[in-house]
Each structure stands twice: as C-alpha cells, then as structure tokens.
C-alpha cells in the first residue's frame, strides 16, 4: 500500500491562503496552480496533489471558489477555479490576521536572537 503523507510543513490555513491569493490574481486549473506556487516560491513550497484536491474541494464547498470552463496554457479546455466574492473577503480577512501573526512570530524570533 502506498504510504500516505499529510502536508505537515504548512500551518493550518496556509495552503488555503496561498490558493486564494494565487487564484485571486488569475483563475487557474489545478495543475497550473500547483506549478505556479512551486515556481513563485522558488520550489521551496511543493503542493502535493494529495493535499491540493481535498483543499480545493473544501474551498468549493465553503463557497470561496467556483469552477468554470477555461483554457489551459497548452490550449486544453480545462476546469479553472475562480475566487468568489466570499472568497475575496475571506482572503482579505485571512491576510490581515496572517500578517499580524507573522509579525508576532518575527518579533518573538527576533527577541530570541537579540
């Protein structure tokens, strides 16, 4: 049986946040999304398909995303995901809370080294 690995390298909500942010800029399909995050993060972040698809389904269910027909980079007709109004609001809220948290973490880490 293939060993199953959960994405544990991200904190909860991070994957969703990145997906929202990415798709907010431009609706994409799954593969392009994964490739984009990988490329933008200089291959530091690799989204596993095993995490990506359940996450997409969760967000579809929550109403943050919707899917529509579109074209891939290679001109294949594909299903692309687009951020809804609710999704955009969510992104905004998440971003500000994420920034606060991130600032907090940085201060703590900075204090330790100081």
């Amino acid at each position: 049986m293939p060993k199953e690995r959960e994405s544990r390298d991200l904190f909860p909500g991070a994957l969703e946040l990145m997906i929202l942010q990415t798709l907010y800029r431009k609706p994409m399909h799954g593969y392009a999304l994964a490739q984009y995050i990988k490329a933008v993060s200089d291959e530091l972040l690799q989204i596993e398909e095993g995490s990506l698809y359940p996450a997409l389904q969760r967000m579809l269910k929550a109403g943050w995303l919707e899917s529509e027909r579109g074209m891939s980079a290679r001109n294949r007709p594909v299903r692309v995901f687009r951020v809804t109004v609710a999704g955009a609001k969510r992104l905004e809220a998440e971003m500000s809370s994420f920034e606060k948290m991130f600032a907090g973490i940085q201060r703590v880490l900075g204090a330790e080294t100081a």
Partner: peptide, 18 residues
C-alpha cells in the same frame, strides 16, 4: 461534483503529460 472532481484530476494529469 464528483464528476467534476474526476475531470479536474484527469485534466491535471493530462496537462502534466502534455
């Protein structure tokens, strides 16, 4: 939903193959 999901995944693999 399930059908769409399956399609998305097939598209994903197809794109990669291409």
């Amino acid at each position: 939903r399930y059908e769409e999901l399956a399609e998305s995944m097939r598209e994903h693999i197809g794109e990669k193959v291409d």
